[in-house]
Design a protein around this nucleic acid. Structure first.
Ligand SMILES: [Mn+2]
Ligand SMILES: [Mn+2]
Ligand SMILES: [Zn+2]
Ligand SMILES: [Zn+2]
Lengths: 139, 139
DNA sequence: CTCTAAATGCAATACTGCTGCAAAAATAGG
DNA sequence: CCTATTTTTGCAGCAGTATTGCATTTAGAG
């Protein structure tokens, strides 16, 4: 496996196991939000379903990936920002293309601030925009 | 059952059945986003789980309710705007309180427009803000 | 009231996600 | 490199979520 993957795991004080290396490698190469099912399909039967679930939870805890809300189930995407164990910050927009089905982080597109009613306190925001991506748009 | 419920069902050309009356009545009285499990718990064992699923899908199709994205599963809330069978428009904010667990539509809070990258076309937006609601905030 | 189309209940199935436990693997320390 | 300790994994099992097919029941049209 690639050195970058191993370094990332070590940086987060995680043991470098085959499932973690492969899973992180897939996130890096695919560059889109992935569901547990996507990973299972890509990894084949090399690892148990439960191990993949636990890998995802571990990555979530460590700030390696973040949840992406989706209308048909949760997905996960790499944290590009400097997220750490107790300091997640994901105020960027997610876009899901209804044509090709891909869900992507629009990292440099911040979720606009919203003026909440009196007394409401915002802690976390999740904005999912659905429509057509650039590739599917000009066909 | 209340006349308003029956009228609403008739307006959408739906037969007024007990499950639909009760389900719609719950949505009207609770005034918050509800999951299938919430409805099942409230309705007791008067109706089969499958019937509740089908009622939800029917209401979705007819524009009586809309999906509310949530980090722990889909919920549903009444459409206040004038949604119809093929003309949904939900650009309002949803708020989930991490204290009391309630998810609500903030109907008069529009999701701000976002300048998408070139070629991207928006069809639908879903903004979920999580934090503390007004009731839970001042304790 | 009767007939027909729609809706329901039930059984079966698939998918998602979690836990406990024994076996296997990773690493720290010598 | 070897061993001891801790972590991770696979497996079995379980709970929750969501869907379908089919026979029965029901709502509403006439
Ligand atoms: Mn993201
Ligand atoms: Mn809403
Ligand atoms: Zn696309
Ligand atoms: Zn609250």
């Amino acid at each position: 496996m690639e050195q970058h993957v191993i370094d990332t795991l070590k940086e987060h004080k995680l043991r470098t196991t085959s499932c973690r290396e492969n899973t992180l490698g897939i996130f890096l190469s695919r560059d889109m939000a992935l569901s547990h099912g996507d990973l299972e399909a890509t990894l084949g039967d090399r690892f148990d379903r439960v191990t993949i679930y636990r890998t995802l939870r571990t990555f979530l805890d460590k700030g390696i990936i973040h949840k992406v809300l989706d209308d048909e189930g949760v997905r996960y995407a790499l944290c590009r920002d400097s997220c750490s164990e107790h300091n997640h910050h994901h105020d960027h927009v997610h876009f899901k293309c209804n044509e090709c089905g891909q869900t992507n982080c629009l990292e440099n597109l911040h979720v606009p601030a919203v003026q909440l009613p009196k007394g409401y306190q915002a802690r976390e925001v999740n904005l999912l925009i659905q429509g057509l991506c650039a590739s599917c748009s000009d066909n």
